[in-house]
Design a protein around this nucleic acid. Structure first.
Lengths: 209, 209, 209, 209
DNA sequence: GATGAATGAGTGTTCATTCAT
DNA sequence: AATGAATGAACACTCATTCAT
């Protein structure tokens, strides 16, 4: 009865998505989920071991798809010519497109991961992504600063740009459910951020007060 | 024993801050809070009527201080000369300073309000602030667009800027506990945002695809 | 400040009547009562010692007024000529009038006593009255039975008549708030009951199955 | 272990009957009930969903048995020849027998329903039955009044007879636990009530003062 | 004469989890 | 593969009552 097994597994996942969207991880009720699926809580424990396992079954794949895109981007980008950073629109566009594709592949799951993970092990995932981006930018910015004398990296601005960049995509996801329109909308945002990054990431190299 | 009365009330508030910071509104336990304060749950109900009342006792004053600053800012700003918007640094600095002062007056309370209000009536307060700012920017941007022909407001960018601006302060609060340093750090952020706003808030007035 | 004392005492009693009427003794809240009176629970304890004391302050006087009427009636009636029991309308009318006057002197209090005493020491007061009446009728019926041969008292009917008679007045109180109209309405009820009593209180004196 | 399942369910119901009899619905403690049954409160929620569900499990079936008898009686009786109403003893006896059978099928449950339902959705069930009977008698009495000139229905007496009739059975249940003896005891009561109804339900058709 | 503070025991209810079957 | 039964700990909240002041 392989079909039946998967059917019930999928039914549980579908109902769980609904419930997690409505109540968030912590307040979601396994009884409600399994009841909606025509099953009992025991079924959840059979398929997913526990509540977090069920959450992971929804959220793990979308998450790793995104992590993949980010890491690939970091690897490629490392070799860029920084003097023309801002003008390599093609690269940035390709990155944005890949990220958006990854994000919109399972829309609900990503909304759940980013906004309804409170209480689960995935809580704070956005911050962890920001930290990854921050680490990458730190090294990029160091190379950038080396091109100028009398300039140094503004650590706070660096982190803030990572924050804003990640959240630009999160914000997009929330406000534009259609992935093609999302791609259009993110363009000026990306342009604005790149321009800002280039201009504001460095500060005069005077001793801090 | 007036002292004693206030002592216990304040003790409850102090322990509640701790608990709300750790667990958030929804998962915070009144028994833990009152136990930590050396009292019983009944004491909470005597002083604050219920869980939300206790939360409000922590969070209401900081919140209204901030609302005050925002509304004052909106009122003043309405008369600005838009042609020199970007260069009126004094105004923006004053606004930032007032806002930061308001925000840092009760640091923990604001962190709780912004990040640990889930389940309370204050949930989504950041979004409500963004909507306020968005409404204000909408009208400002309309006046701005009227100065140019062939340009119109990009609604998405407008909302995104509101989002980023509010979150710039939230981000600051999270990452810089010292209010004076916070004021230094927010400056380039504000500059960057104003420059971006002026440049990216309008788009070419072609019919949308 | 004697005036003030009594004022507050009366205010408490008035608010307590309201609350007992709405919720009954058990579910009534002293906090609600004293709050409505502009006082605190402590005031209740000062004036009435405890919740039952407050209830008693409302209910004791009306109760003893009624007890008085009943006992007087029992005493007088003991000497009646049973052969003309049914036709002494004047006596029955006078009794009904006295009882109704006593009952309607503090309408709300009596409603509370009879219908909202659950949980208090007064719970089952109606049954206690019925038992009093039953005891009286028992002796009356014995004398009545002695007038006939081959007849004996039907104990069950005897008790049932006591029950119905008491409840006739309770029913009246519930359904007719005006004491004059009540007196009119009770007349045919009394006639019917007396007629029934005379006819059904005795049964043939055969050994019971 | 089907036995075990039902065993615990039945044990809960048995202990609940005890507790409801002693304390009434409102003051009964689920913890006491489940404790007495050797279980935890959760078991109550598994079997009965909530406190009212447990109460309903005890009381619903007896109640509907009685409602059935009443409604059947109303339907049949509607065609009676009113001129001989009083003398159709067979009909009244059959009705009384059916009602008593229904009432005594689950003695404790009915006592609980009639006397210990305060706070539950069944509170006031006796009054609702009286109103049903009253509605039925209203139409019966109208047909009866049409047989006489110069007579009209006394609304108060009509309602009072409904009240007394229903309470005759309630009283019986309270005072006679044996159903066969109950049937004997109710007979003179029924006779008395029918005789009274016929004689006192109409009054002279003079304008009311 | 009355308050304000606080208690302690209690309430119904919810939940993730376990486990024999 | 999944159920049905049951747990145990937790929860917010209510209440009559006490008592120093």
């Amino acid at each position: 009865m392989e079909q039946n097994q998967n059917e019930n597994r999928e039914k549980l996942i579908a109902c769980a998505k609904q419930e997690f969207l409505e109540k968030g991880f912590a307040k979601a009720s396994l009884r409600k989920i399994s009841g909606d699926a025509g099953l009992t809580t025991g079924a959840v424990y059979f398929f997913f071991h526990d509540k977090e396992g069920l959450f992971g079954a929804i959220v793990d794949e979308p998450l790793s798809r995104i992590m993949q895109v980010l890491q690939t981007h970091f690897a490629e980008d490392a070799e860029e010519d920084l003097r023309s950073y801002q003008h390599q629109n093609g690269d940035h566009d390709a990155f944005a497109e890949q990220l958006i594709t990854a994000m919109y592949a399972d829309y609900d799951a990503l909304i759940i991961l980013l906004h309804h993970a409170g209480g689960s092990r995935y809580e704070g995932i956005t911050e962890r992504m920001i930290d990854m981006l921050d680490a990458y930018y730190k090294q990029l910015a160091a190379r950038y600063a080396a091109l100028f004398t009398g300039k140094r990296v503004n650590r706070y601005m660096l982190h803030w740009f990572s924050h804003v960049q990640i959240n630009a995509f999160v914000h997009l996801l929330e406000h534009e459910p259609d992935s093609e329109k999302a791609l259009e909308k993110i363009k000026p945002v990306m342009d604005c951020l790149i321009e800002g990054w280039v201009k504001y990431i460095l500060e005069d190299d005077r001793p801090a007060g």
